[in-house]
Design a protein around this nucleic acid. Structure first.
Lengths: 253, 253
DNA sequence: GAGTGGTCTAGACCACACT
DNA sequence: GTGTGGTCTAGACCACTCC
């Protein structure tokens, strides 16, 4: 028997149904992750250790970890241990970037150019998307991604100012590697999942020259809302993709 | 002990690594699904029954079914049984349609209009995508989807002629419900998963009037390749979406 | 109450990585 | 060899559905 909340004895009539033990364990592990007890890239305690700590069987811990692994919060490595997922991993970088060259290669941007980075008071729409009050400080940055020298992606990024204190254009320009790895290492902000809204739009007079296309040219507009633990939004992004030699790839199942 | 291929005793030096029992069970269940032993919507035998049939423990069958369930091939229903997934289910219809109204509603098309349906010899590009020889018979159909009366999606669909014998414009027009449910019920073809390539394009002179937009207007081009068992391609689709009041929604994780 | 999937346990053994 | 995750088993009990 574990020391955890046992089944559903009594309780309010409209109780939240029934939560199996392994989900309670999962919630505990999640809290440790969120609280930073184990840092991204580090190993968490072994299954037997956790089983002992929580006073449950190894199988129950396993099932909790299984779910966290399929949610990409943990990574299991046979023979080595279970590790906190990180955007710094070579093969996980640009995990959220769905852009692929028409030849099928999944390109890492060959060049990133920061065009702007400023702090300002949040416009109402941005504040709403980030769950902030209107007028709260936000950081806005703009960058251009090139593939094989050609500009393909123009992105505007909004971040909550309080979470990303000290973020400057210099530090952005300096960092090599994926942006989310940077956020993780420098600000302790982990992107867990994201939602995107994709549309076709016409290139505006301001953006067109940056992407090297003519005004009115169709571009892919990709609005992203990235979330961290507890589904808290921590980034808004609006990308304009030139899809004349690339496309947005998606798997349905 | 089971009667199945036991671990990796000897074998060719470059054996395919190691296949756990539950994966072999999974493969067997998959074969039965593919062979039509259980039809879409029907219940498969209970876990204990399958365990007896395959001479393994219930836990092993469970793990096999677990994987098939996460791949959306089976659906578990506590207390009732495990069922073969079907596109005919109310809440699974339009499972692959990522289009959402900007208000956030996930619309079932209020009207579907078939504009064309013909048999022809496959163009080279289509044949390649469907894994056919050039000149093999294919069916091409075109339809328009309306939401709240407004045309939003114009789709061209290509199907292998041999798999969809007897498909006519009349039968298409007659059927109510999702297209994939129709394919499943009438031709025994089950769509398992799909890949999509999304781009922004300009409305052409021919398509623009059908969608009620002006020529040159940016549209979302969605190319889909749908696969059945064994990753065999059985449908190509090219949709043009008017994204002025709708968008393509995607979840990243 | 009978049957189904869902949870939890305890223990044995296998595959893999490090040392 | 030791420790880690991965597989497999057998059995008990729980939650849900239907009769």
């Amino acid at each position: 028997m574990s020391a955890l909340a046992s089944s559903n004895q009594e309780g309010e009539p409209q109780g939240p149904a029934f939560s199996p033990l392994y989900r309670q364990i999962k919630a505990l592990i999640l809290r440790s992750l969120q609280g930073g007890e184990w840092k991204p890239g580090e190993a968490i305690p072994s299954e037997v250790e956790l089983a002992a700590r929580f006073k449950v069987s190894q199988g129950t811990v396993r099932k909790a970890i299984d779910e966290l692994a399929t949610e990409n919060l943990l990574v299991r490595r046979q023979g080595k241990g279970t590790f906190v997922a990180t955007h710094a991993e070579e093969d996980i970088q640009y995990r959220f970037l769905r852009l692929v060259s028409d030849a099928g290669r999944r390109p890492a941007p060959t060049q990133r150019e920061w065009l702007d980075c400023r702090r300002l008071r949040s416009p109402a729409e941005i504040a709403r998307g980030l769950g902030l009050g209107p007028g709260d400080p936000v950081i806005q940055a703009r960058r251009l991604l090139r593939f094989d020298g050609r500009p393909v992606v123009l992105e505007d990024i909004w971040l909550p100012g309080t979470l990303f204190k000290g973020l400057t254009a210099e530090r952005l320009a300096q960092y090599r590697g994926a942006l989310y790895a940077f956020f993780e290492a420098e600000f302790g902000v982990r992107m867990i999942r994201a939602e995107e809204k994709v549309r076709a739009v016409a290139a505006g007079a301001l953006e067109a020259p940056l992407l090297g296309v003519s005004e009115g040219m169709p571009l892919l507009s990709v609005e992203r809302r990235a979330l961290t633990y507890g589904d808290k939004p921590v980034e808004l992004r609006r990308g304009l993709y030139d899809t004349s030699a690339h496309h947005y790839r998606n798997e349905l199942s």
